[in-house]
Amino acid sequence: MSTAYFRIHIAILLLVIFGPLGNVLLGKGMKQIGPVLSTSPQQFARVLLLVVQSPAIWLGIAALLAFFATYMVVLSWADYSYVQPASSVAYIVVALLGRFVLDERVSLIGWMGVLVICAGVFVVGQTHPRTTERKP
């Protein structure tokens, strides 16, 4: 296993931890704020005020910033069209977090879907991570 291969997959592992964690925290925070059905300036200002006061959303943003920093680095190592499907393992993490942290119900079809995603990720993993030339 080459160093490049190893570092790309370590970075992808970090992506699938930070991304779902951020989304789950944002979802928790927005559920506490309530439905946003209008995007009028007054409504936007009201929601923005509630958003900046939500600890769950700040934690979610921190996780997503960590995700974004990792994402930028890994995109300099491998193709976008490789990284994006490979990081789809995040759906397993989202399903697990949804099931065990947010106590959501995940059906049998849902879990089957997660397994098919794993198969897709495996197939993507068989292709070369980079197809374009490196900058000299």
Partner: peptide, 12 residues
């Protein structure tokens, strides 16, 4: 692979 991922996500 991308297609499989899409099918899986659609099942979810």
């Amino acid at each position: 692979g991308v297609l499989l991922v899409c099918v899986g996500v659609a099942l979810v």
